[in-house]
Nucleic acid binder design. Sequence first.
DNA 1: GTCGGGATCCTCT
DNA 2: GAGGATCCCGACA
Length: 204
Amino acid sequence: MSRGGVAGASPAARLTDRAWFDRPALEVARDLLGARLVHETPAGRVGGRIVEVEAYRGPEDLAAHSARGMTARNAVMFGPPGHLYVYLIYGLHHCANVVCGPGDKPEAVLLRAAAVDEGLELARARRGDVPQRRLAAGPGNLGRAFGFDRSLNGTDLLAGPVHLELGDPAGPIRHGARIGVDYAGAWAARPYRLWIDGDPHVSR
DNA sequence: GTCGGGATCCTCT
DNA sequence: GAGGATCCCGACA
């Protein structure tokens, strides 16, 4: 049942199985809850447990960037799974997605919130003086706390500076409508936002 | 070349 | 709860 939890004495192993990402976004989203996200830079490491995500389905999902076909911006979504798709939103915030599958299907999981438990000083230097629970609450804040920018777009999660360590969620998983995608009609109401119930690090 | 909108966040009221 | 910040990207002429 365990997917390699982080609670044990030995440190969690880096996820290096490409096939793990080669699944529908909803499956990957569920398994990302409780996993750790780590970004290593010359300035240091920032790591944290993922507590909130949103799944974006293939091109039929009108809320997904892949809905209008491949462009220079979203090309990473159409590439192999297990890569990072980073884009700038509102000219201010970098949002990070995990590209998944299955196969060539351009699905992805938006990382919305994490509980930072490593590199707190570095994360605070990037975010300013905010409570620990808010360091990476919301996709824009998460991107800033982890030091994500467009130079990381297309990064291989199996070999690059950003990687994942699987773990189990510390509470029940809840589902709800995605945020900020009202333009997508009925797709906006689908319960593709997943979070760990009761976790104080969730964005809303 | 120009224009308009966006998977957000923070501050102020 | 409302509105501004801020700029890349895509659509269109």
